[in-house]
Simulated scan of single mutants.
Amino acid sequence: MIYSMTAFARAEQAGEYGTLSWEIRSVNHRYLEPHLRLPESFRDLEGAIREALRKGLSRGKVECTLRFAEDAAGRSMQVDHQRAGQLIAAAESVAAMIKQPAPLNPLEILSWPGVLVGDAADPQALNNTALQLFHQALEQMKAGRLREGEQLARLINDRLDAIGTETATLRSQVPQMLAAQRQKLMDRCVEMRAELDPQRLEQELVMLAQKSDVAEELDRLGTHVTEVRRVLQSGGAAGRRLDFLMQELNREANTLGSKAFDTRSTQAAVNLKVLIEQMREQVQNIE
Rank of each mutant, 00 (worst) to 15 (best):
residue 100 Q to T: 13
residue 277 E to R: 12
residue 34 P to V: 06
residue 123 P to C: 02
residue 257 G to A: 05
residue 193 R to A: 11
residue 282 Q to R: 07
residue 79 V to I: 15
residue 95 A to N: 09
residue 131 L to T: 04
residue 271 N to H: 10
residue 269 A to R: 12
residue 73 A to I: 13
residue 246 M to K: 01
residue 212 S to I: 13
residue 39 P to A: 09
residue 260 A to D: 05
residue 88 I to G: 05
residue 235 G to Y: 00
residue 164 G to D: 15
residue 176 Q to H: 15
residue 226 T to N: 11
residue 254 N to T: 09
residue 11 A to M: 05
residue 22 W to K: 04
residue 90 A to P: 14
residue 18 G to W: 12
residue 75 R to E: 10
residue 221 L to K: 06
residue 192 M to D: 03
residue 206 V to N: 13
residue 233 Q to D: 15
residue 232 L to A: 04
residue 14 A to T: 14
residue 150 E to G: 06
residue 92 E to C: 11
residue 17 Y to R: 13
residue 224 H to S: 14
residue 9 A to N: 02
residue 15 G to S: 07
residue 223 T to Q: 09
residue 21 S to P: 03
residue 37 R to I: 00
residue 164 G to I: 04
residue 195 E to H: 10
residue 188 R to N: 12
residue 104 L to G: 02
residue 247 Q to S: 12
residue 204 E to A: 13
residue 276 I to S: 06
residue 7 A to I: 02
residue 93 S to V: 12
residue 193 R to K: 14
residue 86 Q to V: 01
residue 14 A to Q: 14
residue 15 G to Y: 06
residue 255 T to C: 08
residue 51 E to P: 00
residue 83 R to Q: 13
residue 141 M to C: 10
residue 37 R to V: 00
residue 30 R to P: 08
residue 47 G to C: 11
residue 148 E to A: 00
residue 125 A to I: 10
residue 145 R to N: 00
residue 100 Q to H: 08
residue 132 Q to Y: 05
residue 227 E to T: 14
residue 203 Q to E: 14
residue 180 A to P: 07
residue 186 M to P: 02
residue 157 N to P: 02
residue 106 P to M: 07
residue 129 T to Q: 15
residue 245 L to I: 08
residue 242 L to E: 11
residue 249 L to P: 07
residue 111 S to Y: 04
residue 138 L to W: 01
residue 257 G to F: 02
residue 243 D to M: 04
residue 149 G to Y: 00
residue 223 T to W: 07
residue 85 G to K: 15
residue 138 L to C: 07
residue 45 L to H: 11
residue 99 K to P: 10
residue 167 T to V: 15
residue 87 L to K: 13
residue 83 R to V: 11
residue 269 A to N: 10
residue 153 A to V: 10
residue 243 D to Q: 02
residue 65 T to F: 01
residue 5 M to S: 05
residue 101 P to Y: 11
residue 112 W to N: 12
residue 74 G to T: 10
residue 195 E to P: 03
residue 75 R to S: 08
residue 70 E to S: 10
residue 171 R to V: 07
residue 47 G to Y: 11
residue 165 T to V: 07
residue 129 T to D: 15
residue 237 A to Y: 00
residue 54 R to V: 01
residue 211 K to I: 09
